[in-house]
C-alpha cells in the first residue's frame, strides 16, 4: 500500500532528476541573465515606493515617511502640473506618429529589397540602410543642424539658390514634428528591416513557384504569400511597439529640441530630467515613471489579447 502510493512520486522525481541531468548546462546558462535581472531590474524595483514616499537622500526607501494623501501626493501633483500634461500629450502624439509612419517603413523596405533581382546591390543597399542605426542622436542632431538650419543649413542654402523660401525644418513646431519623425525613420528603418528579411527567408519558395504556375503576378504574390508569411513577425513587433506607446526615449527629443519648439518637443523623459535629475524632485518623477510603466503594461496586455482575439499567436 505504502509503496503503491509513493511510487508515482518517485518516478516523477526520477523523471525530473533525469531531465535536469540532461539539461543542467542550459539552466546554468540561464543563471547568468536571471542574476542580472534580479540584481539590476528586480531589486531596484523596490525603489518604486519612492513614488509614494517623501524622498530623502540619506534614508533607505523602507524608512522614508509616506507622502500625503495616502501616499498619492506626487501623483496628484504630477497631474496638476501643466508641464506634465503637455509632456504626456506630446509623448503620445510623437509616439503615435512614429508608430503610424515608422512602423510600416521597414516592412516596405523589406518587401522592396526582397523583390530586387541583383543580390549584390541588395546587400549593399541593406548595409548602407542600417548604418544610421549606429549613430548616436547627438551626432544626428548635429547633422540635422548642418542640413536644416534656416540660414546656414545646406538644404536651405540650396533652396535659397533655387529661389525658394527657406523651410523652417527645425524652428517651427509643425515642421519640427515631421523632421523628428522622418529622422527617426531614417535612423531605424534599415535596422528594423533585418528582422523582416530574416522572416522572409523562412517562407517556402514552393509557394511562389506554385503561385507563378497559377498565373499570379508580382503584386499578387506579395499580397498572398509574402505578407501573410510576415504576419506573425509584424504582429509581435506591433505588440512590442504598442507597449512603448507611452514610453519615451530621452536622447532623441533632447538632442533635437530647441527653444522655439518646446510646445511639441517637451516629452515625459525631458520632464523627468528637468524636474527629477535637475530639480531633485525624485518622488514626483518616480511617480511619473511608474504611471508611464503602468500604462505601458496595460497597452502591452491589451494589444496581446487583441492579437489573440484575431487568431494570432501573441507574444505569450
Amino acid at each position: 500500500m505504502k509503496t503503491a502510493l509513493s511510487k508515482p512520486s518517485v518516478s516523477r522525481q526520477q523523471k525530473n532528476l533525469n531531465y535536469f541531468k540532461r539539461y543542467w548546462t542550459l539552466y546554468l546558462l540561464l543563471l547568468l541573465p536571471i542574476t542580472y535581472f534580479i540584481i539590476f531590474k528586480y531589486i531596484p524595483m523596490t525603489y518604486i515606493q519612492i513614488a509614494f514616499k517623501k524622498y530623502s537622500i540619506i534614508q533607505s526607501p523602507w524608512e522614508m515617511p509616506w507622502a500625503a494623501n495616502n501616499g498619492f501626493e506626487y501623483f496628484i501633483k504630477a497631474f496638476a502640473n501643466r508641464d506634465f500634461l503637455y509632456a504626456l500629450r506630446n509623448t503620445l502624439m510623437l509616439n503615435l506618429l512614429d508608430l503610424v509612419c515608422g512602423f510600416p517603413a521597414p516592412i516596405l523596405l523589406a518587401l522592396l529589397l526582397n523583390e530586387l533581382p541583383f543580390k549584390r546591390y541588395k546587400r549593399i543597399t541593406q548595409t548602407i540602410a542600417y548604418m544610421p542605426h549606429f549613430l548616436s542622436w547627438i551626432i544626428i542632431s548635429g547633422l540635422a543642424l548642418q542640413l536644416f538650419a534656416p540660414t546656414d543649413g545646406l538644404v536651405n542654402i540650396l533652396l535659397n539658390r533655387m529661389g525658394f523660401a527657406p523651410i523652417p525644418f527645425l524652428n517651427d513646431p509643425a515642421h519640427w514634428v515631421w523632421t523628428y519623425i522622418l529622422l527617426g525613420i531614417w535612423q531605424s528603418v534599415g535596422w528594423n528591416t533585418i528582422i523582416y528579411l530574416a522572416a522572409l527567408t523562412a517562407i517556402n519558395p514552393e509557394l511562389y513557384e506554385a503561385a507563378s504556375i497559377d498565373g499570379a503576378g508580382r503584386m499578387r504574390k506579395i499580397w498572398h504569400i509574402t505578407l501573410p508569411g510576415l504576419r506573425p513577425t509584424i504582429i509581435t513587433l506591433l505588440i512590442l511597439s504598442l507597449g512603448r506607446i507611452l514610453g519615451s526615449e530621452f536622447d532623441r527629443p533632447y538632442a533635437l529640441k530647441n527653444s522655439l519648439v518646446n510646445s511639441v518637443s517637451n516629452v515625459i523623459s525631458i520632464f523627468v530630467y528637468d524636474y527629477g535629475i535637475k530639480g531633485l524632485q525624485f518622488s514626483l518623477t518616480t511617480a511619473v515613471g511608474l504611471f508611464q510603466s503602468a500604462i505601458s503594461v496595460i497597452f502591452l496586455f491589451g494589444a496581446n489579447s487583441l492579437a489573440k482575439k484575431f487568431g494570432e499567436r501573441g507574444i505569450w
Binding site: 524595483m45 512590442l240 515613471g289 510603466s293
Partner: peptide
C-alpha cells in the same frame, strides 16, 4: 521586458 519598463522609472 515589463521589468525593464518598470525599472526605467526608478532613479
Amino acid at each position: 521586458m515589463i521589468a525593464t519598463l518598470l525599472a526605467a522609472c526608478v532613479p
